[in-house]
Every structure is written in C-alpha cells, then in structure tokens.
Simulated scan of single mutants.
Amino acid sequence: MEQIKLGNPAAVGLAGFGMTTFLLQCHNLGWIGTGPVLWLGLFYGGLAQFIAGFLEFKVGNNFGFSAFVSYGAFWMALAAFLIFGTSPEIVKSYPLLKLTTPEVAYFLLAWTIYTGIMFIGSMKANGALAIVFLTLFLGFLGLTIKEFTGSATIGTIAAWDLLLCAFSAWYLMAHIIFADLGINLPVGKAWL
C-alpha cells in the first residue's frame, strides 16, 4: 500500500503567525490602523494557526501543537479583546468588558511567561526556530514593560524586535515550503 505524503501544518501556522505579527507591528509603529490586524488576527493568525496546531497534534508534534493552538488562541483573544473591550456601545452595555491598561499588561505578562517556556524548548530544534521564539519572548517582554510603565520608547523597540520575529517566522515557513521543491534553506543547529 502506497503511503500518502501529508503536508506540514507548520507552513500555514508560521505564515499566519508571521503575517499577523507583521501587521500588528505596522500598527504599533503607527503605519496602519487596527482593521487589518483584527481581521487577520481572527482568521489567519487565529483560526488558521489554531487549525494548524490541531494538525500538528495529529502528526504527534507536541511543540507545534502547543505553539500553534496557543498563539492561534492568542490572536483570536487579542482581536476579541480589542473589538469588545474598546467599543463604547458594548462597554456601555457590558462594563466588565472595558479594556484597561493593567489588564493588557497582565495579559501580555502571561504570554511572556508562556513564550519563555516555549523558547527553552525551541532551542532543542534548530537555530531558526530559536530565533523566532527569542525575538517573540523579547517582544512580549518589551510590550509588557511598555504597558506597565507607559514607555513609548520600549513599545517602539518591542515593535521593531517583533518585525524581526515576523520575518524569522516567514523564513522558517519558506524553509518548510521550499524543502518540498528541492531548495534547502539553512536553519542552523540546535542551541541546546
């Protein structure tokens, strides 16, 4: 019986993560509004990445399962948080949904901690994945500090770091896609 070759769900997960991270940083740097970020956060960075995570589960990749399902949920939660927590009409009817700076700071702190754990695991895979998670960890840390302190400078530094994270995720996505075409992009050795 012939074995059916399956696609690698990480290609879609990394693409959705990279694109949504890129657009959010374009917003954080003041280049675009929130509209594209919210819609992409719901569908590509959110839903598509979430589905990719469950496909990683199916192939037995616990790291990819945890990462893609979690960050897919992050994007959907962030988009919903921004839509419902900032809408004057909704907040008037449901004041508990009001978005406040301390809530955003603690939301980001929780993701910083999770990302730190995932960064440790990523160092066992390859250098490219470790760079994605290192820049993501530093970006979350910067955004968390920005929300707790109100420092626009730290927020700008975090946005530039997260642009590097987005491009690193796209590079890793390209590595996966190109490998099927006989093009081998280097990903570097594991750091641990």
Rank of each mutant, 00 (worst) to 15 (best):
158 A>L: 03
136 L>Q: 10
116 G>V: 04
83 I>T: 15
49 Q>K: 04
101 T>D: 15
69 V>K: 04
129 L>H: 09
25 Q>M: 14
142 G>A: 02
110 A>L: 11
99 L>N: 13
110 A>Q: 06
163 L>F: 13
10 A>G: 14
18 G>C: 02
108 L>P: 02
164 L>N: 06
91 V>M: 00
165 C>R: 06
13 G>K: 03
78 L>E: 04
83 I>D: 11
106 Y>R: 08
114 Y>E: 07
113 I>L: 03
13 G>M: 06
112 T>S: 08
159 A>C: 01
125 A>C: 11
66 S>V: 13
51 I>Q: 02
150 G>M: 10
12 V>L: 14
87 S>W: 02
75 W>Q: 05
77 A>V: 11
75 W>K: 04
153 T>Y: 15
111 W>L: 03
57 F>V: 09
124 K>T: 13
141 L>N: 03
72 G>P: 02
111 W>K: 01
141 L>R: 07
72 G>H: 00
137 F>A: 03
152 A>N: 13
120 I>P: 03
58 K>L: 11
70 S>C: 00
88 P>M: 05
112 T>H: 03
22 F>D: 04
148 F>R: 01
162 L>R: 15
39 W>S: 12
32 I>C: 05
176 I>T: 01
156 T>L: 14
24 L>Y: 08
176 I>K: 04
104 V>N: 11
5 K>A: 15
48 A>K: 06
105 A>Q: 02
108 L>S: 05
19 M>P: 12
66 S>Y: 07
115 T>W: 00
113 I>F: 02
106 Y>G: 08
3 Q>I: 14
128 A>C: 08
63 F>A: 00
142 G>F: 06
127 G>D: 07
105 A>W: 00
45 G>N: 05
157 I>C: 03
184 N>W: 05
92 K>I: 10
182 G>M: 00
190 A>S: 09
88 P>V: 08
56 E>P: 03
101 T>C: 07
133 F>D: 02
165 C>E: 10
21 T>Y: 06
52 A>M: 01
19 M>V: 15
67 A>V: 14
133 F>Y: 05
141 L>E: 03
112 T>P: 02
110 A>K: 01
43 F>W: 12
69 V>S: 08
119 F>K: 03
137 F>L: 10
87 S>I: 13
180 D>Q: 13
187 V>E: 09
45 G>H: 05
89 E>G: 15
3 Q>H: 11
64 G>T: 02
5 K>P: 12
142 G>C: 01
60 G>E: 00
58 K>N: 11
99 L>E: 12
190 A>G: 07
184 N>G: 11
104 V>Y: 14
154 I>D: 06
14 L>K: 12
44 Y>K: 11
141 L>V: 10
119 F>R: 05
92 K>C: 10
57 F>H: 12
153 T>E: 12
17 F>W: 08
109 L>R: 01
27 H>D: 08
152 A>M: 11
8 N>D: 13
5 K>F: 12
141 L>I: 07
173 M>E: 08
22 F>N: 07
80 A>Y: 08
100 T>G: 10
57 F>W: 15
180 D>I: 12
145 I>C: 01
158 A>Q: 07
32 I>K: 04
2 E>V: 15
73 A>C: 06
15 A>V: 13
148 F>I: 00
77 A>H: 02
187 V>D: 08
41 G>S: 09
145 I>H: 04
144 T>E: 01
17 F>Q: 05
63 F>G: 02
7 G>Y: 13
4 I>G: 15
